[in-house]
Simulated assay, not measured.
Amino acid sequence: MLSPVFLPHGSPYTIFEKSEFTAFLNRFGKENRPKAIVIFSAHFESETTTISATDDVHEMVYDYYGFPPEFYKVQYPARGSTIVASIVEERFRRRGIPVQQKYRGLDHGVFPVLLHAYPEADIPVVPISVNPFLPAKQQIAIGEALQGLEQEGILVIGSGMLTHNFNEFDRDRHAPPREWAVQFIDWIREKALARDIDALSRYESLAPYSAKAVPRPEHFVPLLIALGSGTPGREVLELYDSLEYGSLSSLSLQF
């Protein structure tokens, strides 16, 4: 089933990890084999929705700092697709969503996920930017423009993190869960599984501890876009969940 998904990309350490989470990504890739992937990356920001279009092998964007040399030698030689980029652009334009094509390579919001899900790098990848400052309803509307792409064999991925607050990040991977993180995650899970778009569009005022869990929304809005791109009325599935470093959620959902 190629229904849209929200997948956390983890930290740069995810690139080389062999964990329960990376095993999940590997299973997901084996069970979901699209013709192309459209991925909204929390690490690709622009005011106007920007589609990275190319038919060549993507360049790598190492947008993290202070890691060992091997982290800057990772390659994920997937190609892009100008055909898929044009399909997506046309859908946005029909909905009146400002859009442009401008090339950008694969960043940390893209390749750690795909390295584990599709290690052969044999599926075309089209990265798309996020504007974290748009209201939640507009984020969902961006996703709604892409409803039904799975019928053309195109998988929509929102890549981010449900909770992303480095000030609350515990250095111990097995640290006890922070109560605020548990409450926020549980609220988001409940509303997402119920496909409660109204509540999720007002998560900033309704969800407990939203300001602490989402101090800046660039990692959260890929969830809203993936939610919007799912077919209305279809059951939402929880694919994976764990909580590490006290507050780092890996909740993964299929819409």
Score class of each variant (00 low, 15 high):
40 F>S: 00
41 S>P: 12
41 S>L: 02
41 S>D: 06
41 S>A: 05
43 H>T: 05
43 H>Y: 01
44 F>D: 03
44 F>P: 05
45 E>N: 08
45 E>S: 09
47 E>R: 10
47 E>T: 12
48 T>Q: 10
48 T>M: 11
48 T>P: 01
49 T>C: 13
50 T>K: 14
51 I>Q: 11
51 I>P: 10
53 A>Q: 11
54 T>E: 09
55 D>Y: 05
55 D>M: 11
56 D>Q: 11
57 V>F: 02
57 V>K: 15
58 H>W: 05
58 H>P: 07
59 E>H: 03
59 E>M: 04
59 E>P: 05
59 E>G: 13
59 E>Q: 12
60 M>R: 08
61 V>L: 14
61 V>F: 04
61 V>R: 13
62 Y>K: 09
62 Y>G: 11
62 Y>W: 04
62 Y>R: 07
63 D>H: 00
65 Y>D: 15
66 G>T: 06
66 G>R: 06
66 G>D: 06
67 F>C: 06
67 F>I: 06
68 P>L: 01
68 P>G: 01
68 P>C: 02
68 P>V: 00
70 E>P: 02
70 E>V: 03
70 E>A: 06
71 F>Y: 15
71 F>M: 03
72 Y>C: 01
72 Y>M: 01
73 K>N: 12
73 K>C: 05
74 V>G: 03
74 V>A: 10
74 V>K: 08
75 Q>T: 08
75 Q>R: 14
75 Q>S: 11
76 Y>K: 07
76 Y>R: 04
76 Y>P: 06
77 P>H: 03
78 A>G: 14
79 R>V: 14
80 G>H: 09
81 S>A: 11
81 S>D: 15
81 S>L: 10
81 S>R: 08
81 S>M: 13
82 T>N: 09
82 T>F: 00
82 T>Y: 00
85 A>N: 13
85 A>W: 05
85 A>F: 04
85 A>Y: 06
86 S>K: 14
86 S>C: 07
86 S>V: 04
87 I>T: 15
87 I>C: 06
87 I>Y: 10
88 V>R: 13
88 V>T: 12
89 E>N: 04
89 E>C: 05
89 E>L: 06
90 E>L: 03
91 R>W: 02
92 F>L: 06
92 F>Y: 09
94 R>D: 15
95 R>T: 10
95 R>V: 04
96 G>I: 07
97 I>S: 08
97 I>Y: 01
98 P>S: 13
99 V>I: 15
99 V>H: 10
100 Q>T: 12
101 Q>L: 12
101 Q>Y: 01
101 Q>G: 07
101 Q>C: 08
102 K>T: 09
103 Y>Q: 12
103 Y>M: 04
104 R>S: 14
105 G>Y: 01
106 L>T: 00
106 L>W: 00
107 D>P: 03
107 D>F: 00
107 D>C: 09
107 D>L: 03
109 G>F: 01
109 G>L: 06
109 G>T: 07
109 G>A: 08
109 G>W: 03
109 G>H: 02
110 V>A: 03
111 F>N: 00
112 P>C: 07
113 V>R: 00
114 L>N: 07
115 L>D: 03
115 L>K: 12
